[in-house]
């Protein structure tokens, strides 16, 4: 072995990849060459020190809390809140119904503009998001405002006022909901818990497991209202999983929920 080969050997030494033969040759060369002997010694020192470096290091608690909190905030920002979704649906229906009404008042103008037909086409879609959509659509159709097949406006101005009135009512509902902050929950469960914050975390975890979305709102004096949007078929199991959080010692009556689609349940948490 000569000095030019030593660097490559030292990399194999670091990687524990030297054969016995190579090791002997390296040691023999080191005995003859002081410069390479120093390089071998330094390599062994470096290898020993690297071996003392831990590949994993405990993350300080505050740093853990910071990154986890940052991720939760990012998740919240991405996710539409249940009450926003409901308001958006109601408002969308309201806006379109007003649009339909406006289209009808234009009936008889020399040209139908594209917006009229667009409003007609959009109306059925938005209506679907309302619980009373079938009745409303049927009512509109039977009054002849919209032809069911073509979606064209077939009735004259008499219906315009009614359409505008329906639109205004829907708008009003949306505004009322927004003012109140929430639509009516399908059920409310009051829980007296040991610690509200811990209970909220547990409810969030359970919500994830049951493919629900939980929104926590502070309710003053350390209490919290948790709105959970959940598929109706999961609601019973979810509430039964949440009920044990109650620390009062009294039996928690979990209501029986029927229906399809998604429901809103309210969990009112107060500290024991």
């Amino acid at each position: 072995m000569d000095c030019t080969q030593v660097n490559g050997m030292l990399d194999l030494l670091m990687d524990d990849a030297l054969s016995d033969e190579q090791r002997s040759a390296l040691e023999a060369h080191g005995r003859e060459c002081p410069a390479c002997a120093a390089a071998i010694r330094s390599t062994l020192q470096m290898k020993a020190l690297f071996a003392q470096m831990e590949p994993e290091i405990d993350v300080p608690l505050e740093a853990q809390a910071r990154w986890r909190g940052a991720v939760r905030e990012a998740a919240k920002a991405q996710r539409p809140k249940p009450l926003r979704r409901w308001i958006a649906s109601a408002a969308a229906a309201a806006v379109v119904l007003v649009g339909v009404g406006a289209a009808l008042t234009l009936r008889g103008a020399p040209k139908q503009n594209a917006a009229t037909y667009e409003a007609d086409a959009v109306a059925p879609m938005a209506l679907e998001e309302r619980a009373d959509a079938p009745a409303l659509a049927s009512g509109i159709a039977s009054n002849g405002m919209v032809d069911g097949a073509s979606g064209a406006v077939v009735e004259a101005d008499g219906m315009a006022d009614e359409a505008v009135a329906i639109g205004e009512t829907a708008m009003g509902l949306a505004m009322e909901s927004e003012a109140a902050g929430l639509p009516a929950p399908a059920c409310e469960l009051a829980l007296r818990v040991k610690d509200v914050e811990t209970a909220c975390d547990r409810i969030r975890d359970l919500a994830q497991e049951y493919e629900a979305v939980a929104d926590v709102q502070a309710a003053g004096d350390g209490a919290a209202d948790v709105y959970v949007e959940i598929a109706a078929e999961n609601a019973g199991d979810f509430l039964n999983a949440v009920a044990p959080l109650d620390a009062s010692g009294k039996a928690v009556e979990v209501p029986e929920l029927t229906g399809s689609g998604r429901l809103l349940v309210l969990l009112a948490l107060t500290e024991q």
Binding site: P55, Q64, V71, A75
Partner: peptide, 18 residues
């Protein structure tokens, strides 16, 4: 699912930090 993410990354954070 932020909770699932935090659980998942809890298994990697010490090495990431190192």
């Amino acid at each position: 699912d932020a909770a699932a993410f935090n659980t998942l990354m809890g298994m990697h954070e010490r090495r990431m930090y190192a």
